[in-house]
Amino acid sequence: MSEPILSVSDLAVEFDTYGGTVQAVRGVSFDVAPGKTLAIVGESGCGKSVTVQSIMGLIPIPPGRITAGTAMMNGVNIIGRKTVNGEDIRGGQIGMIFQDPMTSLNPTMNIGNQIAETLIVHRGYSKRKAFNRAIELLDLTKIPEPEKRAKQYPFEFSGGMLQRAMIAMAIACEPQVLIADEPTTALDVTIQAQILDLLADLQRETNMAIILITHDLGVVARMADEVLVMYAGQMVEHGGVDDIFYNSGHPYTMGLRAAMPTNQPGIDARLTPIDGSPPDLFHPPAGCGYCARCPHAMQICVDNPPPTYTLGERHETRCWLHHPDNNTQVEGINKAVGSSP
């Protein structure tokens, strides 16, 4: 693994609400290297979007609050900073695309000017130069007739085309990291395939790192080099994509796989749902966040948060089943080779 371009450690984020303080992210660490894709997976409310939004400085403060953690990029902690060496981080060094392309663009501005705005603000381009570059970017994201399209407004674009336009905007300043927050969730599968291919092509050309947030394990299998599985605001497992799919060390990761149909002829195993629902993050459980839904939960899981166990090179999990004194063998769970407190 080459040097990471972005490394996040122990990030914790809280939100004050009328109902109390929500601990949305409770100590998350990960890193991503140039040219690699990290997928962050987990169900709604597990903190995956909040994690990347706090790196981007997009969470409203107040009510939000980053209580701990660092995000190091090129040797500088970018949490709470707007610029590094005079250059904007947001939109400059890190680009971001959002889930819903229909509502994330300004309906009163034509597409070309919206892309050009990024270049005018971050790169100091003249209006004309920026607009011409916007046309090139639309061409790069494979939008047909880019000169004509640049003068059109969002309502004249389809969902897939808008997502391309948003990608064009995000890569306008040639970011080192591209954060894609559920980029294809609102799109049909045939359009999803086009957008995923486009992201992979752009990554090959520019060697940017991609952080892909998704809940679709099919998309993860297609795109990711490494996977971070989150649950209740914490990392439960992190590893290479093959480790996560074939050599998983956490009951939640295995539960997600068992809850999806496999597309193999002749295999029609009944789906195994994960019963219950995620814990209330106003009062996160003292022990493991998953213990209330875990089929292998033990008393220690309720009382104490599990430490991180190392299962292999760049493969780690937080689960008490890996404790050396645990004698319960769970099918499919491999014993840890070591642990870090």
């Binding site: 045939t190 099919g218 299998a221």
Partner: peptide, 27 residues
Amino acid sequence: KILIGSNPEPDPKLERQRPSTAIEGEI
């Protein structure tokens, strides 16, 4: 064929071997 081919499988080994089936254009 295209619709089913566009559906990503939750299986990284299979996905790495599978060629892209993305087609141009939209409905």
